[in-house]
Design a protein around this nucleic acid. Sequence first.
DNA 1: CTAAATATTTTACCGACTGAAATAAATATG
DNA 2: CATATTTATTTCAGTCGGTAAAATATTTAG
Lengths: 405, 405
Amino acid sequence: MLKSKASVVSLDQRNATRLRVLEQIRSKGSVSRIDIASALETSPATITSATADLISAGLIKEIEGEAQSKSGKRGRPRVLLQLDSHSFLVAGLKVARQMISVILVDFEGNEVTSHKAQLEDARMSPANLISTIRLALEDTCQQVGLSIEHLAGISIGLAGQIDAARNFVHWSSSVTERNIDFNPLIAKELPCPAFVENDANLVAKAEQLFGLGKGLKNFLVVTIEHGVGLGIVLDGRLYRGKRGCGAEFGHTKVHLDGALCQCGQRGCLEAYVGDYALIREMTVTGHADDMQTVSDIHTRANSGDDRAALVLARAGQMFGLGVSNLINLFDPQCIIVSGAQMSFEHLCSAEVMTRIQNGVVNVDAPLPEIKVHHWGDLMWAKGAAAYGIEQVSILKVKELAANAS
Amino acid sequence: MLKSKASVVSLDQRNATRLRVLEQIRSKGSVSRIDIASALETSPATITSATADLISAGLIKEIEGEAQSKSGKRGRPRVLLQLDSHSFLVAGLKVARQMISVILVDFEGNEVTSHKAQLEDARMSPANLISTIRLALEDTCQQVGLSIEHLAGISIGLAGQIDAARNFVHWSSSVTERNIDFNPLIAKELPCPAFVENDANLVAKAEQLFGLGKGLKNFLVVTIEHGVGLGIVLDGRLYRGKRGCGAEFGHTKVHLDGALCQCGQRGCLEAYVGDYALIREMTVTGHADDMQTVSDIHTRANSGDDRAALVLARAGQMFGLGVSNLINLFDPQCIIVSGAQMSFEHLCSAEVMTRIQNGVVNVDAPLPEIKVHHWGDLMWAKGAAAYGIEQVSILKVKELAANAS
DNA sequence: CTAAATATTTTACCGACTGAAATAAATATG
DNA sequence: CATATTTATTTCAGTCGGTAAAATATTTAG
């Protein structure tokens, strides 16, 4: 009761261990205590105690399945541990221009249900945004006979510059005001902890927890939607920079005093590969004024329109240049190019990959692998869910420790 | 004696604390125990024990100087602690194209003496390089009546791709062979531990320990010599990427299919700002075939040669583009542009600074400060020395722990 | 000189983790 | 079938880094 500082410190230490154990179980799917011990280079005794805590909290469980022993078949069989998917529900949301998508997942990340709602306005006031979110959540929960009260956490992905640690939105294309602290609104309108993050960071989290970055310590996730985004995972953690905002890959300059970008600057990568940039290129010469989406351009290109093919090819070249710069600067284990739609084929063609390779300074070590990940529609919401699961895990482990004392 | 693993683990923990204490003392210059305790958020008791160890090892000492108490003048006065500069000597070396420079520093980083030697060949075999280094070290030590045996550590800076953790040189412009493990050669030819590192990383270390990055956790150091280099400090540690090599800032692409670079690729920043690139620009049209150095171009520009001024200006523009990309990607606390000579004026002109500012995506948070650091001739060697001091400190603290057991 | 203030050291203890021993649960073997 | 062997997990008695609180040291204020 009295040992205020001591207990905080020791709790943090214990929690860190418990979280590392949880992380092992999540990334391996199912794993025995002895394997966790050797993976974390710690003693079996420690794992026994950590897993006992996690089991009593309902976060993990023992399962029956056959586990093979180190060698031979003799000896006490290993007991596999698994996440207890029923332990809690998390909602992941992505607020896009005309659409809000929601996904409900269990603790393992399995989809329970999902939902989409049209948005009337691309930009909303903070209060408006939160009540829209609440509504979307209620609708989603209703689909499976749940109420919003059942949620353990809500994770919200926005495009823009966001300080996730503080739920503070410097700027977002979905919000009419700048520099908004969402914590008060969340506390007032939502019945459980909620987390706001930059959407590209969320996808990086999803790749780390469930996707192609599982188990990797250093990788980059390039997201492609209407523009391009970047999530940076260094040493297993999201790198957010000093101001806590995401990296502005889309606004790195690929041409001195080049094409005009929506941000007002010139030569941004996004001004060469963003949807609007491609459409502008197609329409500016009056070559095609019915171009509405990048898919239209793809269609044209595939049916033999040289101009369309050139526009796409140039975007690919610029994209390749940008990605090779990322590799030159970060030297990551792996780069994951993640997109929801198929409309980014032109950014992962063999030619672009070659260009990337050729733009990376040669070392004798092999180039980082470049993986392309087509997620489908729910990419962003799933990303949000991944972040939500992580945050809720941390909260649960902390509660656990608090109760134990 | 028997507790093999336990002792390793606990030693690491203790050493980490001792090193953090040492780091505090180094970055503050002189500081009292109570201040260290509050800076590290630890208890005074821990600091008492850590400093006692460091004092008995001769790494630090108590000094007399007046220290002001928190408030008022009553109370037992604080005792200031300082590095004991006499505890050991470290040599820092930089191997450049035609020159090898050596600096001898004490534990505080104060210069004891320095020395330069002409190199016959820009590229040498590994064995040749090490014996050349040994010779240079012997000459340097002789200047102050010491022998090479007095050195506690030797740090060697090379341009190229180097895995410092293993003293492994993937490639260096100073070495004729690729993929060389220098450890055996070092053990054979040098009387004390030696460390090989990429030269840009060394300058970053120097900025962190003694320079403009003192106390900063996240910053970038851009080095300018014949080309440009980048050292990345994240979370207080050098970021080296997956393959352990330095970031290749000079070979990030600033123009699609642009100017040909020495590395064989096109559009590299270095192909626009490197010495040879500028000289090529001046000579290619026969405009000036007596151009030997960038200083010559400066001279010309200052005496009204428009062509020279334009060449320099263009280099500045490209450099600004590259630096703003760094800021967009890393969002660092601060960027330090470090150069030895004055020949990089054109890269830190007001115009270039403005260009950098204009290339960074606007957040409401202030832009990271861009600091320009003119080091003088010994920049690289001093950088090596900084790294050497750090490495030797780690070794000494480890020895200390080993002896205590 | 005494009281008050502040810095440092000492001391008793806490808690995370460990090694070793104990226990559990399987197979191999005769 | 009983027993030895093997391997996984748990229990238990430390160990070690660190802490709070008490003790001590050293100063100024009054």
